[in-house]
């Protein structure tokens, strides 16, 4: 069964027909040719497909496209302004926060979303004082980024990149 939906992807409204079973990830990758979000597990177990969905980081492999008609999606591609990279992306390059690059767009989107969450005062599992505003030390970055697996093991460099990009 097909449905027609609209998505605003990286600033552009796109209209597309999807199977009601189509995930947001497949709608982006297979229907719209937006391949910045990656499919690493297709079951919410790796974070490679993370985008900013209506302003928040979210996995797209477990979201049905039809349920997100009208949504605003920003991928890692959309975080860059043409040739100008987002500060977090720039920091990933400088700190070598990537190797094979497959988890990278998801890491980048997750990092950008995470920094907003910290700004909003959200705590994490490792936040000592639940009441107060969190302080973004390395332990906090690691915990908050743990939804993004990297098999190449770029973790220490990713943390360094986020530290740099957060400044």
């Amino acid at each position: 069964m097909d449905a027609s939906i609209r998505l605003r992807v990286d600033g552009q409204w796109r209209t597309l027909d999807v199977d009601t079973r189509t995930t947001l990830l497949d709608a982006l990758r297979e229907r719209l040719g937006v391949t910045s979000p990656k499919k690493g597990c297709d079951h919410g177990q790796c974070g490679s497909c993370t985008v900013l969905l209506d302003g928040r980081r979210a996995v797209t492999c477990l979201a049905l496209a039809v349920a997100h008609d009208g949504a605003e999606i920003v991928t890692a591609e959309g975080l860059a302004d043409g040739e100008d990279l987002h500060p977090v992306q720039r920091a990933f390059l400088e700190q070598d926060g990537l190797q094979c690059g497959y988890c990278t767009p998801g890491q980048v989107c997750s990092a950008v979303g995470m920094l907003e969450e910290v700004k909003a005062g959200w705590p994490s599992q490792v936040t000592e004082d639940l009441a107060g505003p969190p302080e973004l030390d390395d332990e906090e970055i690691r915990e908050r980024m743990s939804g993004n697996l990297c098999r190449c093991g770029a973790y220490p460099n990713i943390v360094a990149a986020i530290r740099q990009g957060a400044r």
């Binding site: 910045s36 591609e77 975080l79 860059a80 992306q89 767009p105």
Partner: peptide, 14 residues
């Protein structure tokens, strides 16, 4: 820096 890095941080490397 990685020459393919830019394409990868934006997700454009196919």
């Amino acid at each position: 820096e990685r020459l393919d890095g830019r394409d990868k941080v934006v997700g454009q490397a196919p």
